[in-house]
């Protein structure tokens, strides 16, 4: 039982971590909390749905959907955020809300207000047994994908020139530009990575929901925002820690609270968040440089 709940917690935490990381990468470079991150997930879901309806095999459809999320993120930067570069944090924030709202309406009117069922292959809804307890294939995939994505990102940031430049840009963007690294490239890469992470998270999210709807991005981006703040806004390890912490708290409370108190779960979780921020105002693992907000 307890082992099972731990697997549930890690699985949910992994998805939150991927999402929070996507927000944190962009924030660390351009100081923007991209609330349209959730709509990248929605986009991914609809691309997957369209590809499956068109008869594309499942693995290819997943690949296509994740690529579309990355392309969508770069396009978002190019169309909406680049013209706003250098604007105040508030303007950037409002721009991201505008993009988010616009995309929601496009999905609602262009596709349908009704959720659309996504045919998840049978093998993904199965379960396998190890010793005493059964592990769902879905949660197992979720955990593996999260861990692989986190390791790959770590490798990219530590071992490549662009990655190093991005880490440097998070600390002091002006100096990086003086070193001759083009700002556009750094920023575009940041959005590309955040799009990839949103795409992966969306696949895990959709696989456990079996449907996509125009508003599906709202809850996850809210969770990611909370996770990123708890972890330390702009800090990548912080976002991962925050994501896992949020997932673990949510699942463990849901598992252990008596039925009468269970409806207050979210209130308890958010009180916990406030408590963490009272003790560590900069988050669990603060960003190297305090952000220019």
């Amino acid at each position: 039982m307890i082992a099972q709940q731990i697997i549930n917690a890690v699985s949910l935490g992994g998805v939150y971590a991927l999402l929070a990381l996507g927000l944190a990468i962009v924030f660390s470079i351009v100081g923007l909390i991209n609330f349209a991150h959730g709509e990248l997930m929605t986009l991914t879901g609809y691309v997957l749905l369209a590809a499956l309806i068109a008869g594309v095999p499942f693995p290819a459809a997943v690949l296509l959907a994740v690529i579309c999320a990355a392309v969508g993120a770069v396009a978002m930067e190019r169309l909406a955020f680049r013209p706003m570069r250098g604007a105040s944090v508030t303007s950037l924030l409002l721009t991201s809300f505008a993009v988010s709202g616009l995309l929601k309406v496009i999905f609602q009117n262009g596709v349908s207000a009704r959720p659309q069922a996504v045919a998840i292959p049978n093998w993904m809804t199965g379960a396998f047994s190890i010793g005493d307890f059964t592990i769902g294939v879905g949660p197992a995939i979720s955990i593996v994908v999260s861990i692989v994505a986190l390791i790959a990102l770590e490798f990219f940031l530590k071992r490549t020139v662009t990655g190093t430049a991005m880490r440097a840009a998070a600390e002091d963007f002006d100096v990086v530009r003086l070193m001759g690294i083009p700002a556009n490239r750094i920023i575009a890469t940041a959005f590309l990575l955040s799009g990839l992470l949103a795409g992966l998270a969306a696949m895990l999210w959709v696989a456990s929901r079996a449907s996509v709807d125009p508003l599906m991005g709202f809850t996850p981006v809210l969770k990611a925002f909370i996770a990123a703040v708890v972890g330390g806004l702009g800090s990548l390890p912080g976002a991962v820690a925050g994501g896992f912490l949020l997932g673990v708290i949510e699942v463990l409370l849901q598992a252990t609270l008596p039925a009468a108190i269970a409806p207050y779960r979210d209130a308890i979780v958010l009180s916990g968040v406030i408590a963490v921020l009272l003790i560590r105002p900069q988050g669990l693992i603060p960003a190297v440089r305090v952000q220019r907000s």
Binding site: R114, I120, A127, A207, S211, D213
Partner: peptide, 13 residues
């Protein structure tokens, strides 16, 4: 929707 699809997907899963 969208809770019921998620519930039954995860339950059968």
């Amino acid at each position: 929707e969208p809770d019921f699809p998620a519930f039954i997907q995860q339950l059968r899963g």
